[in-house]
Design a protein around this nucleic acid. Structure first.
Length: 433
RNA sequence: GUGGGCGUAGCUCAGUUGGCAGAGCACCGGGUUGUGGCCCCGGCGGUCGCGGGUUCAAGUCCCGUCGUUCACCCCA
């Protein structure tokens, strides 16, 4: 478990605000969900044989004795909320996004945490491959707004349950008399044969060279659906890699499955993953409701995001005051500035002017307003621009770097009654540049 | 669930065969009695993760424990 602290938090806010903006462009609306659900929901949706359900859930009884679980993923909760509130009724596609923490009890490592954050997208009610593509376009739209680096989009089709039965049978037959599979795969061979496909062992991959491929087992409908998805991705110039061995960890996926990988994340390099889950609604006792969605791993995304992205560059005003009367005045000045929507700060501890200047510098103040006895008497404050490398010509500055290429910026006397207009004007004009 | 690395000042880390707990950065003050960033000087700051053991003596050796980190399994 970990805390997320400033200045890191402003990067999180930025990522989330970009995601919200793009979701809005595509017509998605936010839903907010409980972090706790009845254990049964996850057991039924994710699949009892998956690692998530078998060993990774935070599960405990509540006071009444009902078994509750901290959500290990969002899709099941979203679908539960949709069905409970009859949100699937009515014409057209229903589009939702949600974001927040998920919980899995596993050993943390790079890019993996016990409490981690996802941005989730879920769309219901439309079976057409166009929706698959729109969802992928949406995902790539968000990621490209956020990340400058190259992303690898991996796609595959897992087929419908009919295809999967045939394929699993073929794969099982293929695996049954193969020698030399790693220990894990020997176990998986019976428990979850699909997982053998994406084993990282080089030796297993060698054995799998001529294993049956899902694509050959797709029924005509599934094959046509997948072909159309690929055709549209091409038309929108979305670069993708076909990855026949892409299987996903949750049982409920059907047809289109995809994953986005980024470099620099170590062993856990998937920043987003998703796919169709047409059968899940019925599985949970609802109607036959086609559905597709994805999850972005926010923690991992932040990990590969350059450090300067999403930092707060809002200009601030610092009011430096000397003496008690000046401090009184300064307090009213910063409140006035804040009411004008300008971020403003001052010192409450009676520090020296030098110390206040230094503080202003650390707070990244764009301007310092200096108020002392002289200024109060004259009714005129000194306004000093704090751009890097600016300095006052008359000051006792020993800055050794002063010289080549520095601009001279003098501080200006500004009557108190003009202060607000002066500062708002200065800062607005700088913001537009 | 399995295997390894690391826990010493706010941060990053030194610490010799066991012998007075250190540096850089950050912070505070001064050099400049009213002016930030560079420079110089000074200062503040540590139950050495926690508990036990060995020893005249433990940051150092041993055992346990907690935390953290990387990898496996698996996933975002």
């Amino acid at each position: 478990m970990r805390d997320i602290l400033p200045p890191e938090t402003s990067r999180w806010q930025w990522v989330e605000s970009v995601a919200r903006e793009v979701f809005d462009l595509y017509g998605y609306q936010e839903i907010r969900l409980p972090l706790l659900e009845r254990t049964e929901l996850f057991a039924r949706s994710i699949g009892a044989d998956t690692d998530i359900v078998a060993k990774e859930m935070y599960t405990f009884p509540d006071r009444k004795g009902d078994s509750l679980t901290l959500r290990p993923e969002a899709t099941a909760s979203v679908l539960r909320a949709v069905l409970e509130n009859r949100l699937e009724k009515g014409a057209g596609v229903k589009k939702f996004f949600t974001l927040g923490p998920m919980f899995r009890y596993e050993r943390p490592q790079k890019g993996r945490f016990r409490q981690f954050y996802q941005i989730n997208c879920e769309a219901f009610g439309v079976e057409a491959p166009e929706l698959d593509v729109e969802v992928i376009l949406l995902l790539m739209h968000i990621l490209k707004r956020l990340l400058p680096g190259e992303l690898r989009l991996l796609v595959n089709s897992l087929g419908c349950p009919g295809c999967q039965v045939k394929f699993k049978a073929a794969l099982g037959l293929f695996l049954i008399n193969r020698e030399g599979l790693c220990e894990d795969c020997q176990r998986r061979r019976t428990t979850n044969p699909l997982r053998v496909l994406d084993c990282k062992s080089a030796h297993c991959q060698e054995i799998l060279q001529d294993a049956p491929v899902m694509r050959d087992y797709l029924c005509p409908d599934c094959a046509a659906h997948f072909a159309r998805v690929l055709e549209l991705l091409d038309r929108f110039n979305v670069a993708y890699e076909l990855k026949p061995k892409l299987v996903r960890g949750l049982d409920y996926y059907t047809r289109t499955a995809f994953e986005v990988a980024a470099v620099g994340l170590g062993a856990q390099d998937a920043v987003a993953g998703g796919g169709r889950y047409n059968g899940l609604a019925k599985e949970l006792g609802g109607p036959d409701l086609p559905a597709i969605g994805f999850a972005i791993g926010e923690d991992r995304l932040l990990e590969v995001l350059p450090l300067n992205f999403g930092q707060d560059h809002r200009p601030r005003v610092f009011v430096a005051a000397l003496g008690e009367p000046a401090r009184e005045r300064a307090f009213t000045v910063i409140q006035e500035l804040r009411r004008k929507n300008l971020a403003a700060e001052m010192d409450f501890e009676g520090r020296s002017l030098k110390a206040q200047m230094s503080l202003a510098d650390r707070l990244n103040a764009a301007y310092v307003v200096i108020v002392g006895d002289k200024e109060l008497a004259a009714g005129v404050a000194q306004v000093r621009p704090m751009k890097k490398f600016s300095y006052e010509t008359g000051g006792k500055v020993k800055l050794t770097e002063v010289g080549a290429g520095r601009t001279l910026v003098k501080q200006e006397p500004v009557p108190f009654e003009d202060l607000m207009d002066y500062l708002t004007g200065k800062i607005r004009s700088e913001e537009t540049h």
